[in-house]
Computed example of a mutant assay.
Amino acid sequence: MKSLLPIIVIISVLFSCKNNDEIPQRQYTKFWKKDIIVDSTLNIRAIEVIDGNIYYASGDGKNGIILDDGSLVTGLVHSDSLKYSFRSSAFNGKNLFYMSIESPALIYKLDYHQKNKVYLNHNLVYQENHEKAFYDSMDFWNDQEGIAIGDPTDDCMSILITRDGGSIWTKLSCEDLPIAKEGEAAFAASDTNIAIIGDHTWVATGGKSSRILYSSDKGKTWEVYDTPIVQGLETTGMYSIDFYDENNGFAIGGDYTKPADSSANKIRTQDGGKTWKLVAKNQSPGYRSCVKYVPNGEGKELVAIGFKGIDYSNDAGDSWTHLSDEGFYTIRFLNDSVAYAAGKGRISKLTFRE
């Protein structure tokens, strides 16, 4: 028996490798679209799917809920004197938050309405009147701790932190953050400038300089890493970032004024964001405003979306399949085959198929 053991081990390894090679990699080649809401006055970049309901906020200040029965409730946050421009939202498991972009930059906290079983009652929990205020994205680590990011008003990116469930937000001092480079900011294009895995946080900047701000401890300390993505102009850089786990991440962007340019608009990291490399150089897609890992895709499957269409990769971004010319700004996955996309004048349900 002892002499047969090496042979048995070799046969087992070969058989195992053969089986792994024979497992086909899923390849989405098409999708089915169902419009949930169509309204030419909307310009939507912020959506949240909560308990089957779709909460949206629009750049023209309109906001509401598309209930799971198809009915619509509007005006969750309203004002008689202010015209909001909402570009971001976040849900911490207990409350829904909407954030407006420009001075006065506002964060509203929506409470759960027990009778109607939706998030309705709103309270203003943060206001910033700085003339340079411009906020781009927000997210939460847990039900108590969250982050919002915006363009610099001083010598660093604007970063707000809450540690009490979103009732109080505090702006970090530039003494605690990397100094911003000339022309470095962020894009309020899809509410996906922030990626969170556990305590780890990555913030994508863009413009004349496009870098990664990284925190390993929920925003208490920060480091900064360079990227090879196209940069140098106000319209260039990363527009969206996502991480599948603590090591594997992807960012996309480009220059929205040159949407066909794909020379250096897609980057990938495998070491937690410390180093990045260009992928699919000079290959479509060009400019895209949002990228998301497909759930249960083992870090291989990605969907990129923008006003020029929808694209899919099943090899971690090395190659892409153009699925549609349908234009959207942002996307959120419900599961590994169903997502909701929002853009100019509509929110749609997308069902991806092989």
Rank of each mutant, 00 (worst) to 15 (best):
I36F: 08
T29K: 10
S103R: 12
Y119G: 01
D217A: 05
S88Y: 05
S100I: 08
G59H: 09
I168A: 13
I179A: 14
I66A: 05
K266F: 09
S262I: 06
C174L: 10
G249L: 04
G249H: 01
K277V: 14
G219E: 09
A342G: 10
E298I: 06
D176I: 14
T74M: 10
E246K: 10
G64D: 08
R45F: 05
Y119I: 13
L172G: 11
V224G: 05
K30G: 11
V49D: 05
G309D: 05
D60I: 07
G286T: 08
P259R: 03
F86V: 00
W202H: 12
Y84A: 08
K274D: 13
I44H: 01
K277T: 14
D139P: 01
D136A: 06
V279S: 11
S173P: 09
S158P: 03
L96E: 05
K34N: 11
A180Y: 05
D21H: 12
G272V: 06
M1N: 13
I267D: 03
I147G: 01
Y239V: 06
L302M: 07
G249V: 07
A304Y: 07
K266L: 07
A189R: 00
Y293E: 04
G165N: 05
G309H: 06
P104T: 09
F15V: 15
D255V: 07
N335L: 11
I159K: 00
E145K: 15
Q144R: 12
N123H: 14
S89P: 07
Y293R: 00
G273C: 08
